[in-house]
Computed example of a mutant assay.
Amino acid sequence: MAEAAPGIHTLGIIGAGRVGSVLIRLAVRAGYRVLVAGSSSAARIAPTVRALGATAVEVAELAEGADAVLLALPLSRHTALPADALRGRLVIDAMNYWWGADGLNDELSDPRTSTSEIVQRFLAGSRVVKALNHMGYQDLEDEARPAGAPGRKAIAVAGDDPADLTAVARLIDDLGFDPVIAGDLAAGIMLEPGAEAFGADIDAAELRAMLQRFPTSQRGIVVARAREHGSGPRS
């Protein structure tokens, strides 16, 4: 059983859907204490969460008791999060913008900013790190491997604080993947839908190569033009 990452002993996961459930299983298997809150009451999800080896709680209790809080919700619901309760917390953003779930939203699809920067602005008192969003939930379930295993797959991490990047990278390693630092929080746009790395199920060397190619990719050019001119096509 792996030791918890420095500073992360209890992991809180907000969202008990497909992605959240996979991450619960991986974290419990890695030896973390896991608290889970969903869109419904703790009592309603408690039997399912208990079967996964975790504890169902209300969001306020999760924010109080977790060393890091992982968001596995539809992105548009980030504005319902308790920003004051999450103040000072490390928040791991595993969310993506999907128009089918989030509706058509010009802000969330604006190439001038990563969606994690939008989350960070709302959670102004928290420290947001982007991770665990770009690999499909089924691949997360199937591809976790011990450190050093041949063909181990990689997960990218983007954030502004070196200590937080180190903590989240250790968590990802414990969950069964090689962490790859993508850059600051703005660089998280390289992990979003429309980027080559999104949906990729690859090793660390290939993931690094994808990230290096981003500036010359179609999506990268759209992002660069939008950021250079302060406006641009929605995508």
Results as ranks from 00 to 15, higher is better:
Ala2Tyr: 10
Ala4Arg: 10
Ala4Pro: 15
Ala5Glu: 05
Ala27Thr: 00
Ala27Lys: 01
Ala30Glu: 06
Arg44Trp: 04
Arg50Gln: 13
Ala51Arg: 12
Ala54Leu: 04
Ala54Gln: 00
Val59Glu: 13
Ala60Asn: 11
Val69Asp: 08
Leu71Thr: 01
Leu71Asp: 04
Ala72Val: 12
Leu75Thr: 01
His78Ser: 05
His78Pro: 01
Ala83Met: 02
Asp84His: 08
Leu86Gln: 01
Leu86Pro: 04
Arg87Ile: 04
Arg89Pro: 07
Leu90Pro: 01
Asp93Pro: 07
Tyr97Ala: 00
Tyr97Gln: 00
Gly100His: 14
Leu104Ile: 14
Ser109Asn: 11
Thr113Ala: 13
Phe122Ser: 03
Val129Ala: 06
Leu132Trp: 07
Asn133Leu: 09
Gln138Cys: 07
Leu140Asp: 01
Leu140Arg: 00
Pro146Ala: 09
Pro150Phe: 05
Pro150Asp: 00
Gly151Met: 10
Ile155Val: 15
Arg170Tyr: 04
Leu171Tyr: 04
Asp173Ser: 13
Leu175Met: 07
Asp178Tyr: 07
Val180Leu: 02
Ile181Thr: 14
Asp184Glu: 11
Leu185His: 00
Ala186Asn: 03
Ala186Gly: 15
Ile189Ala: 08
Leu191Gly: 06
Gly199Leu: 06
Ala200Pro: 10
Ala200Leu: 08
Asp203Leu: 02
Ala209Trp: 09
Met210Leu: 15
Pro215Asn: 07
Gln218Arg: 14
Val222Ile: 15
Val223Gly: 02
Val223His: 03
Ala224His: 11
Arg227Gly: 06
His229Glu: 11
Gly232Ile: 10
